[in-house]
Amino acid sequence: MLIKPRNHLTLGENDVTPESIYLSRRKFLGGVAGLGLAASLPRAAWAGPDYDDVAKAKGPEWFEAKLGDTRWNAITAEDKITPSDDATHYNNFYEFGSDKSDPARRAGQLKTVPWSVTVDGEVGKPGQYALEDLITPSRFEERIYRLRCVEAWSMVIPWLGIPLAEVIKRAEPTGKAKYVYFETLEDPKQMPGQASRFGLIDWPYREGLRLDEAMHPLAFLAVGMYGRVLPNQNGAPLRLVVPWKYGFKSIKSIVRISLVESQPKTSWNMLAPNEYGFYANVNPEVDHPRWSQATERRLPNSLFSPNVIDTQMFNGYAEEVASLYQGMDLRKHY
């Protein structure tokens, strides 16, 4: 029920998701999006899937211009998509407060245009890039991924963005590059959670991946969700999405991407190394010290059905990513 391995890893730039698969499930305006005709539609026409409950928002010009050429449904999941209202109002984004409703209430003031990202370290082309320059050489894709939070709840979210590997390749990593390190914006004026004197996180928020994990086709850089630009509370304007790892690996509001030689320090691991490992792969057999990871609550749920389902190894992406960890003791490298 969980994996949908439709050879999506071998899809080339111009391949098209078989029409029958998504048309049966999802509403499309005119059904032309997946056929690559979207680009030829008048700009005003909405070519993407119709997420009817989504609060519409206009992104920056470059974003809206690229939207028409998106490969909708490039990767899908059989799971039901979480209502966007839930995905945008129930967030862990400690930069804006520790309550799950804080980000939606307090992230509005974050200024995401203009936005630049520092690319440095072991790369041939270091520099400070405007977000659009980092993203626009690639074609937008929509990917529907399961998101498994380390707190044992999960959602299913349609992201918009580009493969992380493409950005890394364009930076031309040197032979010394072994890991990719990411950093979130640090600005307590815009991010009130960073100003809390009782906060335990050492800002800026940091995350990292092994280079081969980062180059994996499933690793994704999102700039939008539900067919629109990313809402601030979901990590605008640029966030990572690594669907086989716990949600905290998917760092938000990224301002730095560094290629480095040794394993970088990462925020939750610095805070509680016995609870949060560097790898943080979704693994039902390795419990968090404070709760079980064997099951998860698929949200939204209700009082009458907590919607508890079994957690899948690598969040259901084992077929694609298990080979990255061959020979590793995942109990030790949790």
Binding site: S98, F198, L200
Partner: peptide, 10 residues
């Protein structure tokens, strides 16, 4: 023991 990242309230 259930606090994750901010001790203000506690």
């Amino acid at each position: 023991w259930v606090v994750r990242a901010d001790l203000a309230e506690w």
